[in-house]
Design a protein around this nucleic acid. Structure first.
Lengths: 205, 205, 205, 205
DNA sequence: TATGAATGAGCTTTCATTCAT
DNA sequence: TATGAATGAAAGCTCATTCAT
């Protein structure tokens, strides 16, 4: 039932998706949908929560549990962990395009009950990235180099880049998750490394 | 009239915005709206086009025409041009939050007539970035280092990062356009420079 | 189970009362309600019948069986009997406000299957009053003074007055059943006595 | 449009009446009904107000303005005024059975927004009767004979009797307004006169 | 006997859209 | 040119009612 809802919301959008359509796609009657999930709003929230949890779990699993070809382990170096997380992220979004659409496009578009749900997930991912940056900075003895807002901004940029690449990979035939991850790693890790070595770009020169 | 529509669409979303509200905000009667712009769909398309054109124009102006403190000139170095473009981008999105919401959130959320409009704008900006990367690569005698898809991917990542930062800057009090641009330049230009020096990150090592 | 139904119907009204609510209040499952009473309509009818019977029985008991402080006996004078009946009526309606609401407000409001049930009860009470009037008239040697329709009209007026007073007594704190009965007796019995003495009011004079 | 609503509400009841049916009976489309009267609740309230105002106006006109065969005048004796009012009341309810059903049956049945509207009307009529009783008592030099609550109770009884007779007259073929009024006057005025002469009925004797 | 699970039908309300003027 | 007035179509939600067990 949630599957049908995610698919419908992902393709039509929150407002355009009708409960009739969702029920029909789920192969049940409309009142049943209302019996289990009380309202359209609750149903949408449930979709968001489920997809967000699944995505975060996929990333966490890849980073922490060390399974799979691209997985890292708890003690792996920061770049390895980032690579593992990004690969898992791109893989998951590629395999669940409707879920990704719900999170990335629909939920953020439709005001407060929903945006907050996604923001929580985003913060979780951003915190993961932030942690990695801090770890890498520590390794490079640059702990003082970044202020809080610097790190926030970097994390936002990275997550945004990842989201954009995920969309691009979903839409462009032939682009694999590893390729997207590779692109982002090349771009981001080199940039981060440079920053940690103290390199900055400034307009004055 | 378009102003009213952009404001309403930006704040309420495409579906939730009612023609009644738009007409009232514009101070005209509803049939007049239908006289000038034939349907809600056409009206939304017109909004997207106008806002996209304005944003692209702002970026173009800053890069090409050399006016303003952060402007570059036609012959300026690539990093200078990128800086000028980003600053203009963040400034414009900060000054036109509803227009930006229409482009970034609403248009992409509501399926095919609209997504294509935004994709066109995105491609235009991506092409601009692509050109800069190619130019920089040429300067660094690294023309062969990037394939077409590499460049596309980088551009997507950069544009996505910029969009995400624009959203973040709009939502976070006290973040200025120059600060956002600075964050992205530090991150991106260093990364790009590294790439052009041949540095790559690869999972195997 | 009928208790729950009467309470719900009395408080919510026939249409607004849901079978769900009734079943829950009765502490049974909905299909069980349908097993015993076939439909909402039948359930409502059963409620009406039970409450009507209870009310009539209370009045009858007070009038005929001679128990209680205000009770009369079979051979008691007409005024005494009327007093006994009215007191019992007001007492019963005060003690069963939901049942009274079902009879007085809900049943008459919802068309034909139900109105007839209440009309039957009303006729029974009216017949009782009619009998008393006839008896009193006989005592006063005025048998011919009233036509059938006169008596019907008087009975309607009396019952209506009683219903209105019952409502008023239920809503106004501090008004007891005996006080309501007293008011009505003062008003009605004096009026009736006058009528039986041949006094009439006519517009022409 | 209100006509259609009154008719539908009067015959079907508030809940059972559908906006579809009202609109169809009015010969307009449903959205138009919502344009003029904002919701079903508002529509019902408007019906109640209109019918209550019409009924009160009819009574007032007959009592105060001295027109028509049964009309009284401002200075007429209390019984004359009461007669005029009752005749007008029964005439009006007979001529507007649906309006009367809305007021008497439907509005009082459906909880608080509506019951209050009708209670206001009822109070107005009761106040009129109360005034007449007081006036008559004054004429009979019996000012001290009634307490406030006595008078309230009598007025309630009288109004209730009138309402009940109106219903009876509407339902029983061949009963005219004057006949109903006559019945009530015979009954009530004689009773009131008796009360004013100090006659009381008491259970103790 | 008793119920968890399910639904067809219907309700109120809203909105994009169009005439007649 | 501009609009007041009107509507067809659809959406979210509820409820009396029924199987399968």
């Amino acid at each position: 039932m949630l599957d049908a809802a995610v698919r419908t919301f992902g393709q039509r959008g929150y407002r355009a998706a009708s409960m009739d359509e969702i029920a029909e796609l789920a192969g049940v009657s409309k009142p049943l949908v209302y019996l289990y999930l009380n309202s359209k709003e609750d149903l949408f929230t449930a979709c968001i929560r489920r997809e967000a949890a699944a995505l975060v779990a996929a990333v966490r699993a890849a980073v922490g549990e060390g399974a799979g070809e691209d997985a890292a382990g708890p003690g792996a170096p920061a770049d390895r962990q980032l690579w593992a997380g990004l690969t898992a992220f791109f893989t998951h979004t590629a395999e669940h395009p409707d879920g990704w659409a719900v999170l990335h496009q629909q939920a953020r578009t439709h005001g407060e009950p929903f945006a907050a749900e996604v923001a929580a997930m985003r913060d979780e991912l951003a915190a993961f990235v932030t942690g990695l940056i801090a770890e890498a900075a520590r390794d490079a003895h640059q702990a003082a180099a970044f202020g809080d807002r610097d790190v926030s901004g970097l994390a936002q940029a990275l997550v945004g880049a990842a989201e954009s690449l995920a969309q691009w990979a979903n839409e462009t035939p032939g682009v694999t998750a590893r390729e997207a991850a590779s692109t982002l790693m090349n771009f981001a890790w080199t940039g981060l490394s440079g920053l940690m070595d103290g390199r900055r770009w400034s307009p004055t020169r």
